[in-house]
């Protein structure tokens, strides 16, 4: 009896917080792609998916119910005492992720550059073929 209520509690928790579930699923997909895919470009895409999972985690943890975009309106600007904190979504997590996206594309570029260099050497993206070439 006790066990079943605990189980339904966790189920309810999962449904209420399905954002975390999606985060975990995205991270699982990304991790699987990085480990199991043999193609280097697919690995890069897997890395980007893993990264979006983490970004989703930050953004959803900074979201508030009933909150608006974190830009103050003209009325509030003129009366700065009228600011209600819970009316605005969390700007801090947003700026962290904003910069993370731009840095992410730069690191994706580095990854792709390495992949191109590997392709120049081995003329394949397939991991096993690269290893075979190296053994020769």
């Amino acid at each position: 009896m006790v066990d079943s209520t605990a189980g339904s509690d966790t189920m309810e928790n999962l449904i209420a917080n399905f954002n975390y579930v999606i985060v975990v699923i995205l991270m699982m997909i990304g991790l699987w792609a990085m480990l199991a895919q043999k193609n280097l470009i697919k690995k890069c895409i897997g890395m980007a998916i893993f990264q979006t999972g983490i970004i989703l985690f930050f953004i959803s943890i900074g979201a508030k119910n009933e909150a608006k975009v974190p830009i103050l309106s003209k009325f509030v600007v003129e009366n700065s005492s009228a600011i209600i904190v819970n009316d605005y979504a969390n700007p801090l997590t947003q700026i962290l992720m904003l910069t993370a996206i731009v840095v992410g594309v730069a690191t994706l570029g580095v990854g792709l550059a390495l992949a191109q260099k590997v392709y120049q050497q081995h003329s394949t993206f397939h991991e096993d073929e690269i290893l075979e070439n190296q053994r020769k």
Partner: peptide, 24 residues
């Protein structure tokens, strides 16, 4: 998962520590 704050909770640690200062 159960250790994390609820989705959209305005009083979670992430939203309640330093951020109100920025907003105000």
């Amino acid at each position: 998962l159960t250790d994390f704050p609820d989705w959209g909770d305005p009083n979670s640690p992430v939203n309640a520590t330093v951020v109100p200062y920025y907003i105000e």
